[in-house]
Amino acid sequence: MSLLIGYGRVSTIGQDLAQQRVLLTEAGCTRIFEEKASGAKRDRPELARMIDHLRPGDTVLVTRLDRLARSTIDLLNTAERLREAGAGLKSLAEPWADTTTPAGKMVMTVFAGIADFERSLILDRTSAGRAAAKARGVRFGPPPSLTLEQIAHARQLIGEESKPVSTVARLLGVHRSTLYRALQD
């Protein structure tokens, strides 16, 4: 027996889930998972509990898609998780977002294609930007922990004065492994 499962979310503790609860109950949800958490948070325990609770044939109902996901990518990822659980997705405010129908599946497929295209464009722009920055001499990553002078001094202390690496690392304020890496370069 397939069930209609509701998911309601508000962003802050001060907001109230009552309106979503009423709409989801009136729509026939037999169980409603509720959450007071920002949609930007990756860790949403009630969403995870709901997905774990789903059985093949169930349908997740939300009042609006922005209650389920914060972005198109997040929506598509969540919709995929629901599909993997064998469940569908419906939105009361966006009737086109109904993966239980062929038209709704098509719309989600088109969104997935657009999101994938957008990801590809972002990767291409990022790669081009990084390459241009490297060509201008920009260094990526954190700044080096040790200056060239400090490395030369460390070599002298270790090689000529036979100081232990751990003592020199402590003197320079870095971990032994950092000093070993700097000495290898």
Rank of each mutant, 00 (worst) to 15 (best):
M1S: 12
M1G: 12
S2K: 14
S2M: 08
S2G: 00
L4R: 15
I5W: 00
I5R: 04
Y7T: 14
R9Y: 12
S11V: 14
T12A: 06
T12K: 06
G14Q: 08
G14C: 06
L17I: 04
L17C: 07
Q19S: 14
R21Q: 08
T25C: 07
T25S: 04
E26K: 15
C29A: 02
T30Q: 07
T30E: 13
T30K: 15
S38R: 13
G39Q: 03
K41Q: 10
K41A: 02
R42S: 14
R42C: 03
A48K: 06
A48E: 02
M50I: 01
R55V: 10
P56L: 13
P56A: 11
G57T: 09
V60P: 09
V60D: 02
V62T: 08
V62P: 09
R67H: 08
R67T: 01
L68K: 02
R70P: 15
T78M: 12
A79L: 05
E80T: 06
R81G: 13
G86E: 01
A87M: 09
L89A: 02
L89W: 05
S91G: 05
L92E: 00
A93D: 15
E94G: 01
E94R: 01
E94F: 03
P95N: 10
P95C: 13
P95A: 15
A97F: 04
T100Q: 07
T101I: 12
T101P: 09
P102H: 10
K105W: 01
F111V: 05
F111K: 06
F111S: 13
G113M: 10
I114Q: 04
D116M: 14
E118T: 15
R119T: 14
R119W: 12
I122W: 14
I122Y: 09
I122D: 12
R125N: 12
R125W: 09
R125K: 14
S127W: 01
S127T: 13
A128E: 01
G129M: 00
A131M: 03
A133N: 05
K134M: 10
K134Y: 14
K134H: 01
A135G: 04
R136V: 13
R136P: 00
V138K: 15
R139S: 04
R139G: 00
G141M: 11
G141C: 13
S145F: 00
S145R: 03
L148K: 10
L148Q: 05
E149Y: 02
Q150Y: 00
H153L: 11
I158F: 03
G159L: 09
E161P: 05
V165D: 03
S166V: 05
T167M: 00
V168K: 09
V168R: 09
R170T: 08
L171D: 10
L171A: 06
G173W: 07
H175I: 14
R176C: 11
S177H: 03
S177Q: 10
S177L: 04
S177G: 05
L179C: 15
L179W: 07
Y180D: 10
R181H: 02
L183H: 06
